[in-house]
Nucleic acid binder design. Structure first.
Lengths: 177, 177
DNA sequence: GTTTACATGTAAGCTGTTACATGATTAC
DNA sequence: GTAATCATGTAACAGCTTACATGTAAAC
């Protein structure tokens, strides 16, 4: 399974950095496809540290909140590899948007338009993000995710601007009668 | 927020049925975009029952595991509407596939091919599911989700079969040298 | 007759989010 | 000097999954 620990190892496999940066890079790399909160991140890093899969600068037992740099170890690389090999081609999606739109008939047109606008705004943000590291894809894997992300964002944007909006308008026209 | 409770109300707003059926319909309606386990479903229905948002056949306090039919109440419809209106156009995705592919450079070609094959199999299943209720879209909302789902599945399948596979092949060729 | 699908529910536990507490450094 | 961003971490809690326990009805 790909969990927070594994994602941290993945980011650190591309270079050592701070916990704060790990989260930022995760966002930059995967956009909407993976996200972590600090409440998940730091405990995960602590476990990795205890397991010897990463090492960190700074005193290991200090409570001083000093800045620490984490680096992956050989053991961590092995652990990452074994997680990646076991990964399944699965995806878990939880879409508020799809759920709400499914019940479109129970909602007013302005609510539906707002939902589509919000979704479009998110998608445009994601698209920009994926285009962002198009110029500097350090690895082929990064290029793959960047390209795939762009393709999916564009398909979604096109649908919502065209057919999606049209379905909503048609629904509203029907209701006027 | 669209949670399990809200999804149950949504399904029941289209007709009364059993808990078991609610889960099946959820899968049929949303495919990969929403999913619930029984461990989440039945407690949610129990809460809805306690809140008077649904009513059920069968004795309310029986431990006999008898078959029960749930139906939404007027209060439930109001609750559903207010949840839907508050919904945001957001999506939470957790993609094992994207995460693993991002680190493609650390994986062998056969692992990458297997990942793509698995993803394609899932996508084809999802596509069939969305096409499935194309013939009988009871509401415009259902049609919207069905059409959007088809568009996104097709875009993903096309990418993986073409450019996606090509990136992996190119990566492998580079490694041979 | 026996397997498969239908059907309801509980309990333990994992994972992650939200909110909080704290402080350093940089930019304006 | 002060606002924003960088930076680390904890604690309470929510939510869901997995596994379990139990039984019926239909199909073959």
């Amino acid at each position: 399974m790909i969990d927070v620990r594994c994602l941290c190892l993945g980011v650190l496999s591309l270079g050592e950095t701070t916990g704060y940066e790990v989260r930022k890079r995760l966002k930059a790399y995967f956009g909407p496809y993976q996200g972590v909160s600090y409440g998940a991140l730091y405990p995960a890093l602590a476990k990795l540290l205890a397991a010897g899969e990463v090492v960190a600068t700074g005193s290991p037992d200090a409570q001083t909140l000093e800045k620490r740099t984490y680096a992956i170890t050989e053991k961590g690389r092995e652990s990452l590899r074994s997680s990646l090999v076991q990964a399944k081609g699965q995806e878990q999606v939880r879409s508020e948007f799809m759920a709400a739109m499914f019940f479109a008939d129970q909602l007013e047109k302005d609510v539906l338009d707002r939902l589509i606008d919000e979704r479009l705004a998110e998608l445009r943000g994601d698209l920009a993000l994926f285009q962002g590291f198009r110029g500097s894809p350090a690895t082929e894997g990064q290029r793959f995710v960047s390209r795939f992300g762009q393709v999916l964002c564009r398909a979604a944007i096109d649908f919502l601007q065209g057919e999606g909006r049209a379905i909503v308008s048609a629904l509203d026209r029907d209701r006027q009668r």
